[in-house]
C-alpha cells in the first residue's frame, strides 16, 4: 500500500481529529498522529491485514528550535518536539513514517518534559528506543515499563539533544571544557 492509501484508511478508521494530513512533496511522506491516540493507531497498523507493520525500525525524538536569534528568521518551524516512528512490514514489504508532534515543554512550563504515550506494548523494541528518546531529547513516555536513562549516566542532568542544552562544566569533578 502506498502512503495515500494508508492515509485514507487511517482517516476512515480514526477521523480527522486523530490523523493529520500527509505532505506529498516530501521525499519520505509521513502521517501525523495525535499524541493521545498513538497507541491505538500503532496497534491498528500492526494488526490490520493490509498493513501488518510488524517491525519498528526506529523511534526517535527531534527538537525543532533555533536558539541563535540571528538565525531564527530563516528557521521556518514553530518550536516543537517530534517523535518519529519508522515502520516497515517484513511480510508485505512496505514502509510508513508516523509522527507525533508535542510542545517543547508541557503546558509551556520550561522544565516540565512533554508527555507521549508509550508504544512499548505494541513493539517490544520501543522500550529501548523510548528510553533513548527520554535520555537524549527529554520526552516522557507514559506507560513505559521502566523509563530511565540508557546512554547517559543515571545522575546526568538535562537532555543533550535539546537545542538549548547547556553543556555541563563539570561532572563528578571531571572538567567539561
Amino acid at each position: 500500500m502506498n502512503i495515500t492509501e494508508i492515509h485514507s484508511l487511517l482517516l476512515e478508521q480514526f477521523g480527522e481529529s486523530v490523523v493529520g494530513a500527509s505532505p506529498h512533496d516530501a521525499i519520505d511522506p509521513w502521517i501525523e498522529v495525535a499524541a493521545d491516540s498513538i497507541v491505538e493507531v500503532a496497534t491498528f497498523v500492526r494488526d490490520h491485514e493490509q498493513l501488518r507493520f510488524d517491525h519498528l525500525n526506529d523511534l526517535c525524538g527531534v527538537d525543532y528550535l533555533e536558539p541563535d536569534p540571528k538565525k531564527a528568521k530563516k528557521f521556518d518551524h514553530e518550536p516543537h518536539v517530534e517523535v518519529v516512528y519508522q515502520l516497515s512490514s517484513i511480510e508485505l514489504g512496505h514502509r510508513l513514517k508516523l509522527k507525533v508532534i508535542l510542545p517543547r515543554w508541557q503546558n509551556d512550563e520550561p522544565g516540565s518534559e512533554p508527555v507521549c504515550p508509550s508504544v512499548a506494548s505494541v513493539w517490544s523494541i520501543a522500550d529501548w528506543h523510548e528510553r533513548e528518546a527520554w535520555d537524549l531529547v527529554g520526552i516522557r513516555f507514559e506507560g513505559h515499563p521502566g523509563l530511565r536513562r540508557i546512554l547517559c549516566p543515571e545522575d546526568w542532568t538535562g537532555h543533550a539533544l535539546r537545542k538549548d542544552y547547556e553543556f555541563p562544566l563539570e561532572y563528578h569533578g571531571i572538567r567539561g571544557r
Binding site: I27, D28, N57, D58, C60, Q86
Partner: peptide
Amino acid sequence: EVYLETECPRGQMGFY
C-alpha cells in the same frame, strides 16, 4: 528529511 536503512554485516543500519 529522509530515513534510509542499509544492510550492514550486523544488521540494518539506519540513518535519519
